[in-house]
Design a protein around this nucleic acid. Structure first.
Ligand SMILES: [Mn+2]
Ligand SMILES: [Mn+2]
Ligand SMILES: [Zn+2]
Ligand SMILES: [Zn+2]
Lengths: 138, 138
DNA sequence: AATTGACTTAGACAATGTCTATTGTAGGAT
DNA sequence: ATCCTACAATAGACATTGTCTAAGTCAATT
């Protein structure tokens, strides 16, 4: 039984086969799948699971703070189970490969008050872009 | 005649009424419109312009480096004509308002070699999120 | 085992983006 | 000024991603 499922049970989640499978697909901290990729993998274990349930479950996991939504590419949202250690992303512009990175520095502190326009700034998302070794070789 | 149109003409662009209107809609450096917002504004001046042409023209402007594609919200891409002064974005999580910001520091330098996984890193996109003064008051 | 409200499902619908076949035209050639 | 043609625009089909609803199902409590 994964940590994630334990926490969800503790939060009063009704445990269903569908939710279990979605959580299992997200196991491992270095996964960044789209909703339909999650669905495709879930169907292997539970053929009758629907797209709607996958979308619903992912949305709930995001609301609970157990999974992050990231916009590394400009198409589908990606779902990141590594929600408990802050990090950013490095994306290959050619193949879309995504790596978790932990830069030094504090980008939030780098935004002076004069550049905040009265906003209450709470979060910063950093996406590095480049070309991965595999794509550079090819 | 705008700088943008001058540069495009210089690059051998065939000048059409449609391209002129799209460029005019993007005039001003602090605009961050979706493709369909560009289309809606273009239609006011040129009622018969098609969605396909707006998408095509925006895509060409991006290829030419005259306009940036930004993914500040997780829905439609936004098109940013402020391509010649590097900057980042501050987004209101409630209403979606977008501000250009120029943080201090150099996020690219903050990514050590040990966190680059052999990538050739060429670019970094920073999105600050918070609540704007208007939304905070309401 | 019965109950019940939360959960799942299929598929319609919506929003965004892409592609193709056809028609139109900008700009150079004559 | 007119013609020519490669490039551009159009309508609308299609694709992808995401949301919603009505009806059926089931997990957890009793
Ligand atoms: Mn991650
Ligand atoms: Mn901008
Ligand atoms: Zn790559
Ligand atoms: Zn706001």
């Amino acid at each position: 039984m994964s940590d994630l499922l334990e926490r969800l049970r503790g939060r009063g989640w009704r445990m269903t086969a569908q939710r279990r499978v979605v959580a299992e697909v997200l196991e491992g901290d270095h996964v960044h799948l789209t909703a339909d990729e999650v669905h495709a993998r879930a169907v292997v274990r539970l053929p009758e699971i629907s797209r709607a349930t996958v979308y619903n479950t992912l949305g709930e996991l995001v609301s609970l703070g157990e999974v992050l939504e990231v916009a590394t590419d400009k198409r589908a949202k990606r779902y990141d189970p590594n929600a408990h250690r802050p990090h950013h992303h490095l994306v290959c512009a050619r193949c879309g490969a995504i790596k978790d990175v932990h830069p030094g520095g504090n980008p939030l502190a780098d935004l002076p008050d004069s550049e905040r326009f009265g906003f209450t700034v709470s979060d910063v998302e950093v996406t590095y872009r480049g070309v991965c070794p595999t794509c550079a070789a090819a």
